[in-house]
């Protein structure tokens, strides 16, 4: 099949970018989207042009490193699918595909389709954990956790940190990402002890990273590769309100 690509090219964070058109012929529909970009880069390199920089690593949908806007939707047309798991069979012959980086003021573009998502790490570093040192753990069965609770915690913990929620949010809000971790930790007895401190400090960092407000449009859940529920955001609000009411001093 043949495709017409329009890819965002940007030299670095200081330079303005623009869409550049490329045509690819004779592609196999079973090719993955990123393999299509590999193919394009192969051509560019041989022609002495700069290849398109894009983020990717595991290519099996779990590391969360890949992710681009494909025709204006995060990770492309399929629901609950990362860019690396998208294949050309989801497109038609001679389609025009616009490829842009994940955008938000908290995700500055590094080059072409690569963006800086280290804001996520900083949010986690301020509370997205259980404060336990290596070697302190009691036996794993001391606290029973019901099957339902464990599954619920897993649903929140499944986040891969790709940033599609932020990219697809009209406000560039990181509410889904942050709330998924807060919820994961708030559900489990191990995480409950420091729930107040956690939610307050993670939200503070989230705000410091220039993410926008959540306005509950719920687009994030639709585009999330892991289908993380927006109810996590409600849970974060609950935890936050609760912490504000019950915090001492």
């Amino acid at each position: 099949m043949n495709l017409h690509l329009k890819i965002w090219r940007q030299k670095d964070n200081q330079t303005a970018g623009k869409l550049v058109a490329y045509d690819l012929q004779g592609l196999n529909p079973h090719m993955s989207f990123l393999e299509m970009l590999d193919t394009l880069n192969e051509k560019l390199i041989v022609n002495g042009e700069d290849p398109v920089e894009f983020d990717h690593d595991c290519r099996e949908g779990i590391c969360g490193q890949c992710g681009v806007m494909i025709n204006g939707t995060a990770h492309g047309p399929l629901k609950h699918t990362t860019t690396c798991q998208l294949h050309l069979r989801s497109f038609n012959d001679n389609d025009t595909i616009v490829i842009e980086p994940f955008r938000s003021s908290a995700f500055p573009v590094k080059k072409d389709l690569k963006v800086d998502r280290s804001a996520f790490d900083r949010i986690i570093s301020l509370g997205g954990f259980v404060s336990i040192n290596t070697g302190q753990a009691p036996d794993a069965t001391v606290i029973p956790i019901s099957h339902e609770l464990a599954e619920e915690a897993f649903d929140s913990a499944a986040c891969i940190g790709c940033g599609a929620c932020v990219a697809t949010c009209k406000n560039g809000s990181a509410a889904l990402f942050t709330s998924a971790k807060i919820t994961h930790m708030a559900i489990l007895p191990q995480g409950k002890e420091e729930r107040n401190h956690r939610v307050l400090s993670m939200v503070k960092q989230m705000d410091a990273e220039s993410f926008g407000h959540c306005s509950n449009t719920e687009a994030c859940e639709v585009e999330c590769p892991q289908g993380i529920s927006v109810l996590n955001i409600a849970r974060m609000n609950f935890e936050y309100n609760r912490a504000l009411i019950f915090k001492k001093k």
Partner: peptide, 16 residues
């Protein structure tokens, strides 16, 4: 033990 204490949601039986 360490992983459970960190909040790793391992698969559990109905009894917990």
């Amino acid at each position: 033990d360490q992983a459970v204490a960190q909040g790793v949601p391992f698969g559990r039986e109905y009894g917990g």
